[in-house]
Amino acid sequence: MTEMVIDKRRVAESFSRAASSYDQAAEFQRQVGSNLLARLPERFAPQAIIDLGCGTGYFTRALTQRYQQPVMGLDLAEGMLRFANSQSIAESSWVVADAEALPLKTGSQDLIFSSLALQWCPDLLRALTQAAQALRPGGCLAFSTLVEGTLTELQQAWQTVDGFVHVNRFMPLADLQQLLAMAGFGRWHCEVEEHVLRYAQLSGLTQELKALGAHNLNAGRPGGLTGRARLRALTQAYESFRQPAGLPATYQVAQILMFKES
């Protein structure tokens, strides 16, 4: 993604506003993060651990429990960190930080864990190289991110209504893999999971995206309120995807482990 696509200030503000509602709507996010956590090698025993893009601290707490080590939560959204601090144990620490400018000493970390956060980085390669610099030899960056094909049903439905950008755009898998190869890690592995969520009505999806703070954050979105006529047209267009189990919303998730050379 380029700087023209994502405005990090707007990202931080949107997720800060969603702090109190996030956990109630985050079942999919918890599943993705749990899958990422399960991919870490069983014998891997990190001591210095970062949860990058920690949000409400759900996986900060999970990492603390798994490794029995203090975990530092980093996030761009100050509101998320305030909420995380109110929900968490005293051993946790919270720092407002940008993944593209990590406030970490070179070679200071064993594990940087980041679930569904780095897709909001305008310069993902910079974020990856920052992580590589902060890791010790043998350290791991474990992250999940959304790739092209995510929310394709919503994107296609909007295309029948108007020409504006209503759906967040995500990186093609081939472009992501190219960045992974350039980031300076000794070895890495990337696997894509497809998750299909289902809703009784379109409003269930749109309300969930708003509760998560993950509604449209791209440049080029229409200004002002979406008119009722356009919403009716969108609802009608989305109905063409209806299946017996409900309206599908597809997410393409890249699960990635990257190891720094020992």
Rank of each mutant, 00 (worst) to 15 (best):
T2H: 10
E3T: 14
E3C: 09
M4G: 10
I6L: 07
K8D: 02
R9P: 08
R9F: 14
V11F: 05
A12E: 00
S14H: 06
S16A: 10
S16M: 12
A19G: 01
S21D: 11
Y22T: 03
E27W: 14
S34P: 04
L36E: 01
R43C: 08
P46F: 02
A48I: 04
I49R: 02
C54S: 10
G55F: 03
T56D: 06
G57N: 04
G57A: 06
L63W: 11
T64W: 10
R66M: 11
Q68T: 14
V71Y: 03
V71M: 06
M72A: 13
D75H: 03
D75C: 04
A77T: 05
E78H: 13
E78C: 12
G79Q: 03
L81M: 09
R82N: 11
F83L: 12
N85W: 14
S88R: 01
I89M: 08
E91T: 11
V95K: 07
A99V: 02
E100Y: 02
L102Y: 00
L104D: 01
L104R: 01
S108H: 03
D110W: 05
I112R: 00
L116V: 07
A117C: 12
D123Y: 02
L124Q: 01
R126D: 09
A131N: 09
G139W: 07
L141K: 04
F143G: 05
F143T: 06
T145K: 07
T145L: 15
V147I: 15
E148W: 11
T150G: 04
T150K: 00
Q155D: 15
A157T: 05
V161C: 00
G163C: 03
V167D: 05
V167N: 05
R169N: 08
M171W: 09
M171G: 06
L173D: 12
L173G: 07
A174F: 15
L176W: 06
L180M: 12
L180T: 06
A183R: 02
F185E: 01
H189N: 12
E191T: 13
V192P: 00
R198K: 12
R198C: 11
R198P: 05
Y199H: 07
A200L: 15
Q201M: 13
L202K: 08
T206V: 07
H215A: 13
N216Y: 06
N218Q: 13
N218V: 14
G220W: 09
P222L: 10
P222V: 11
P222F: 10
G223K: 14
G223T: 14
G224H: 09
R228Y: 11
A229F: 10
R230M: 13
L231M: 15
A233P: 08
A233K: 15
L234A: 03
T235V: 12
Q236N: 12
E239C: 12
E239D: 13
E239R: 11
S240V: 15
F241D: 08
F241Y: 14
Q243I: 13
Q243C: 11
L247M: 10
P248A: 09
P248L: 10
A249S: 08
A249Q: 05
T250E: 03
Y251P: 03
A254E: 01
L257H: 04
L257Q: 00
M258D: 02
K260R: 05
E261W: 13
